[in-house]
């Protein structure tokens, strides 16, 4: 397995994200078994696997929504130290509000559907302590613009918007505070192909222009292939294989990865 946790020889930068040996069980179901993951600054890590493989559970842990039975999670950021799973609820909430952005597959999880779109983005800024109405409006508008949201619809509530537009509001909310880490849980599932291409293009541009580190979970190998630098393949709560995206797709080593790649291409 090439999920190298040892120090690289050329790139001296430390990984931004390190999840180490995380396990989680719900009664007798092992959702995650000894899972480790790293992501370097500006890198896109793709996580693939069938439903129930544990990929979304892993993402929720990276967003500190869940705590594993064992394992640790660190982010290499100023003023952020130690195992993040040991933080209390308030500290977790502040860290997620200011340094981590998330886009859920289901916009209902990430948005207040009856509040205005700009209000949804402003809410994120409010949690981080911003109080000036003018600044809130300006920053929310800038984030929505970066997500290619049509500005004439700033006041429209997400419930009145299409699926693609709702994902753009989620994305604007996620990037409003310029997070170090952006987590994406099936961000294009359920969108039609042309809208999916728009969202993928926006994500790629954000990653390149702002060097945001991203972790994207998807069962759609095309999406992962378009966005990810490295890919981790999960099955039944464990990582079966990890490597550079082109290597995983062109020369998969594990029987399950071969099955997955052959089924999709």
């Amino acid at each position: 397995m090439t999920l190298a946790l040892d120090a690289p020889r050329i790139v001296q930068t430390r990984p931004l994200l390190q999840v180490q040996s995380v396990s989680k069980s719900y009664s007798d179901v092992h959702a995650l078994r000894d899972v480790s993951a790293i992501a370097y600054p500006g890198e896109v890590l793709g996580v693939v696997g069938e439903s129930g493989s544990g990929k979304s559970t892993l993402l929720r842990m990276m967003n500190l929504e869940e705590t594993p039975d064992t394992g640790s999670y660190t982010l290499d950021l100023p003023d952020v130290a130690g195992n993040l799973f040991e933080l209390d609820r308030f500290a977790r909430r502040m860290l997620c509000a200011t340094r981590i952005g998330i886009v859920y597959q289901n916009p209902h999880l990430g948005l207040l559907m009856k509040h205005s779109s700009s209000g949804n983005v402003a809410e994120r800024l409010l949690v981080a302590g911003e109080r000036s109405f003018a600044v809130l409006r300006e920053k929310a508008t800038t984030a929505l613009e970066a997500s290619e949201f049509p500005l004439e619809r700033l006041d429209a509530p997400p419930i009145e918007l299409s699926g693609g537009m709702q994902q753009r509001v989620q994305l604007a909310k996620a990037i409003a505070l310029e997070p170090a880490l952006l987590l994406l849980d099936e961000p294009t599932t359920g969108l039609d192909v042309s809208v999916q291409a728009l969202v993928l293009d926006t994500l790629k541009r954000l990653q390149q222009d702002r060097q945001i580190t991203m972790v994207i979970v998807s069962h759609d190998l095309g999406v992962i292939r378009t966005l990810a630098d490295r890919v981790m393949v999960m099955r039944r709560g464990a990582v079966v294989e990890a490597g550079l995206a082109d290597q995983i797709f062109q020369d998969p080593q594990h029987a399950y990865t071969q099955q997955l790649v052959h089924a999709k291409l």
């Binding site: 020889r9 050329i10 790139v11 990890a242 550079l244």
Partner: peptide, 20 residues
């Protein structure tokens, strides 16, 4: 023989390969 010194591409870390 990279600008950073010799490296075995067969075994280099993924992040180094991506950089190269």
């Amino acid at each position: 023989h990279s600008d950073h010194g010799p490296i075995d591409l067969a075994r280099a870390a993924d992040v180094d390969i991506a950089h190269l």
